[in-house]
Every structure is written in C-alpha cells, then in structure tokens.
Design a protein around this nucleic acid. Structure first.
Ligand SMILES: [Mn+2]
Ligand SMILES: [Mn+2]
Ligand SMILES: [Zn+2]
Ligand SMILES: [Zn+2]
Lengths: 146, 146
DNA sequence: TCCCAAAATAAGAATGAATCTCATTTACAC
DNA sequence: GTGTAAATGAGATTCATTCTTATTTTGGGA
C-alpha cells in the first residue's frame, strides 16, 4: 500500500540490477507481508487478487530472478513443488522442521549444527555453497490431537 | 547372476511382505551392485539391458514399495527427479555432499550433527521421522581443475 | 516530456517426471 | 496344478515448471 514501501522495494531491486516491474514489487511485498512458505501457485493466486495482470510464467520467472539475487529463497520440502520465502539477512539463515500431518513449518537455527557442516566439508575437501536441512515429523499439536 | 543372491533377495522381499517378482529382485540386485544414486529413468534403462520385460511404471511402483519398507532410500537432490540408493542398516545412516559441477556425491555421517538435530526437535516439541541434510557445493576435483 | 531498444510480460503450448488405468500376466497359498 | 489377489506393461494422464511469441513496459537518453 504505502508508497514508501514501493519505493524501498524499487530501490532493492535496482541495487540487485533487476528492473523494478510492478509484478516483482508486488511479489516481494507479498512475501514481506506474510513470512509464509508459499509455492508458486499460491503466490500466483495471491497476486491475482491484488493485481489484474499477472501470469504464472511471470511468477516463475520473477522467483527465479529474485532467487538468483538471494532476495528470495527456494525451499524444497520434497512434495513435488518448490516453496519460496523472503530471504532474511546473511546472518539470519535458518532451517526447517516440517510437520507431515498439518504442513506446519517451524524455523530454527542451530549454530553447532552449522559448525559441524563446515567441519564435514573441510574433512572432505569440499567447498559448500548452500545446504538443505529439513527435519520431517509430527508437531506437538498433531501429536496431542490424536 | 548367482542363484544364491537371487534366493537371498527373495528372502529379503518376503521378510518385508513383498512378493518376490523378477523385477523387484533385478532392481535390488542393481542397486546392491553399484552403490550409486540412480534416478528412476537410469534404473529403468539399466534394467532394460538385463531383463526384456520392464516398464517405467513398474520401476516407479517397485521403488515406492521398496522405499516403504526401507529397502531403498529416496533422495531428493532438488533437481526435479528423485534418486534412489539401497538402504543400509539402521546403524548406517548417512547424509550427502553434492558437487554442483560434476554431480559427484560424497557420503558422510556426523554423530554430533545428528545429536543436534534431536536436540532441536526436543526444544520444539517435535517428533522427527526423517530428515534431509544435503550440502551443495564444489568438490576438490572440480575446484582444482578450474 | 517524448522516444527507443532492450528487457519483461501474458497467454497458452510444450516438456518431463511421476502417477494412473486397465487388460494381461504372475506369484504363491492351497 | 488351480484360483485369486497382486503385480505388471503399455500407454494415457496429471501437474509443476519451462518455453514460445506477440505485446507491453522499463529506464536511459534526446
Ligand atoms: Mn523459513
Ligand atoms: Mn548415499
Ligand atoms: Zn502438525
Ligand atoms: Zn565435482
């Protein structure tokens, strides 16, 4: 809504050498607003509500461009479609607990685990770029309610 | 080849309440022989070389049945198709380093990391069932050769 | 403010991994 | 050996994602 938010996002996009299209701005605004882990179709449908002109192809292309610049993060929860979240700072990396019953996603960060990852890479003379650390299981709500 | 290997695999399948079809036996034999991380199409093509009758559908269905019984393990390296490996013992769980340049897969096990995972689950009142811990990056071969 | 070339978009076709359908074959308990 | 439920083969189908092409938009410069 706010013109200032639009301006800020325009700024962000340009800093990353991306043209500030209305679709990309709307996409970032959506992810900023919700903090959720949307898939492409959900993003497409949300954007349709707000903007008259959006196409699925643009959602996919924008997500690709934004992910390339680390403005959004791709998440693969292994169910056949990619999820996306707004990237937080370099310093705010986190991993995920995913409830197989209700789909809830719990974010966590564990410094010791990250340190062990680096240690494993060193042992294997391997230069890491990214990692996926997803723990699947049952959340407390789903465990108690059955 | 060996009749004894066939008999052993028949035995294994029956212990898991799976009918010992020639296709399932051939599939297990292939994975036992190579220790590789094949996708379904690769498995299909390999089986075609050896058996005259195999269909893609059977490969997928067999892999599903075998994975259900933990005789094979599904691996999602995030590139759009699932990989499969022969499951090792409960005690031989491992995770993967995946080279983004050459596709090489390095297996590792880190007890401290696994312990931290349990600790994170406890903190979040979460009951884990499985996890994916894949580190993507560049292997030493690919780093030195360029 | 107007103009232009390059880049991005809309709409829908194409792709490809995975699943489903159904007629036929096979496994295995009796 | 028989019968029956389960598994298979072949190909159709699904569905997420990518591609194609004509059209529109962006951003820089006149
Ligand atoms: Mn997250
Ligand atoms: Mn492995
Ligand atoms: Zn839950
Ligand atoms: Zn490599």
């Amino acid at each position: 809504m706010s013109a200032t938010e639009n301006q800020q996002l325009k700024q962000v996009l340009r800093e990353h050498e991306l043209k500030a299209t209305t679709q990309r701005i709307a996409l970032l605004k959506l992810l900023d607003a919700t903090h959720e882990h949307f898939d492409a179709e959900e993003i497409y449908l949300e954007l349709l509500k707000k903007e008259k002109n959006v196409s699925r192809a643009t959602v996919y292309r924008s997500l690709e461009a934004l992910a390339e610049q680390d403005l959004v993060t791709r998440l693969d929860f292994g169910d056949g479609r990619m999820r996306f979240e707004r990237s937080k700072g370099e310093d705010e990396h986190h991993d995920h607990l995913i409830c197989e019953k209700c789909g809830k996603v719990i974010e966590f960060f564990n410094l010791e685990m990250e340190a062990q990852q680096l240690s494993v890479c060193e042992e294997n003379d391997f230069t890491p770029s990214t990692h996926t650390m997803h723990i699947f299981g049952t959340c407390s709500d789903c465990r108690t309610s059955q």
